[in-house]
Design a protein around this nucleic acid. Sequence first.
RNA 1: GACCCCGUAGCUCAGUUGGAUAGAGCAUCAGCCUUCUAAGCUGAGGGUCGCAGGUUCGAAUCCUGCCGGGGUCGCCA
Length: 592
Amino acid sequence: MNAAAKSKNVFADVLERVRGAATPLLAPDTDFSRVLVEPPRDPTHGDMATNAAMVLAKDAGKKPRDLAEAIGANLRSDDIVEKVEIAGPGFINLTLKSHVWAEELRRVLRGGADYGRSDIGKREKVNVEYVSANPTGPMHVGHCRGAVFGDALANLLTFADFDVTREYYINDAGAQVDVLARSAYLRYREALGENIGQIPEGLYPGDYLKPVGEALAAEHGGALVGKPESEWLQIARAKAIAMMMAAIRADLAALNVSQDAFFSERSLIAGGKDQVAATIDELRARGEVYQGRLPPPKGGAAEDWEDREQTLFRSTDFGDDVDRPLMKSDGSYTYFASDIAYHKSKFDRGFLHMIDVWGADHGGYIKRMQAAVKAVSGGKADLDVKIIQLVKLLRAGEPVKMSKRAGEFVTLREVVDEVGRDAVRFMMLYRKNDAVLDFDLAKVIEQSRDNPVFYVQYAHARGESVFRNAREMLPDLPRAAAERAAMLQGARIERLSDSGELSLMRRIAAFPRVIEAAAVAHEPHRIAFYLYELASEFHALWTRGKDLPHLRFIIQNDPETTKARLALVQGIVTVLASGLALLGVSAPEEMR
RNA sequence: GACCCCGUAGCUCAGUUGGAUAGAGCAUCAGCCUUCUAAGCUGAGGGUCGCAGGUUCGAAUCCUGCCGGGGUCGCCA
């Protein structure tokens, strides 16, 4: 019977009540989709504000303020509404009875790690493709932002009830893996005792290929020496790719990133079944692939431009600027051609939602890929491409130099080893994906407010510390979070009346909204910012207990008040831990 | 020349998908530790949201045009 218990959270509940209050005043088929219930920026405007009257005024044929008064009058009799105020152009500001917030906090304690889960995903399948670094060497620091982003986004979508597959596309078919094979072959000869001298220009110079050479030597002895490339290339390539992928997976594991599916580009054309050709033929049959000529690029002098007829995909039919070539001049497929076949495979595997996480230099590629997804799926599937901007690696404000030419780059492993997984992950998510990120190795291990990783983790540890201290007074307070939460559900939360406490209860209650908004927008950074704000408010309330002892969480001769406040702390700790878990960052019990 | 992204406080950045008087951190200045972790907190100053139009009850947010920065532009992935 209690509507609040049925709905997912207070915001959804209040929205229902606003609709209920407005419906009798409107035509039966009124569209409520633009009606929002939000926490107002200014707390003096109450707990909730709705734009209902302003959005619906036109349909109702009334002035916004008049309609607001009418809706407000109906809301005033609602049993969870304390106060209704009409403000500005027609906002309806609601103050809710305080038991509403106590109820919501109990819901947090009941839900534990599940609080904030959403059902908006409806178990729909979504494919999140990320990292997809070429298997030609270890992961370097530039890869880790996309890795962390994709991983956190996948966590978030899972939490919002999508059926998520985390995928890695292995570019094991292009010319660069042949270069890898030749580089490994050279290391193979070296492993057999040959002096290979300087690594020639055009081959990968890094030492990380030595183990591949040694493995080849151990496996094949001298059998491959002096043979033509055609006899060893495949062998060296397969070995090198397998070993590089193993290294990459180990690097990703160090970041706590794991993926479900590793899709090989080579598999598209292997086994006598050329799926790239098949995809192109299919599109050609539908008139979306044709032989034609492209205009030369404008602006540039285009000296080596050679006008020729080629195989083109009609991406302009799907919103792209020009049609895109599918074959190189030597008759092989372009990367785009295999990418179309690859995305078709995602569609064939049942994914109607695809998310690709790409580096910033691929921005110009988005439209054609979205066009291709529309084409191969007959408009049924959608592709969102998240562009991950560069990371500027700094140390105490100074850029960290790296020379790719000398084969020296900062590896992902080095960074994780130096500052820790949590710092890397949190900082990579503490910026919108399309903004350049400064990553300062010195700053992220600082233990200060300047370092958001520390600041948020510290809030969690502080909360846990309260429980440790409270146990002196309440010896039966359980250590395990779930049992403790169960016990604290019985606390008299209604007696919490300080504005800081109430404000924290509202902040906690906003978590499900943040989850949904972040999931819909594919923006995990919103969780990081939310956690920072929650931590900040908790630190503030904590310190107020210094000046005002009656506001401390633990009140020596008042177990009832103490329990009520511990319930609040439990709510804070629960949401902090679950938000951090979505980001893949640990929630420590203490910071020492 | 075309397309994409960015432009918000001195610096680094958020801004709840169009809401009310635009917010944090750093830096600057002024304060708070016999007490639950001062690894923290409170307050002050600091803004023509790049510029100009438009859409509407209402624009940092949407549209158009400029300005500035970055990226991309048949054969690399």
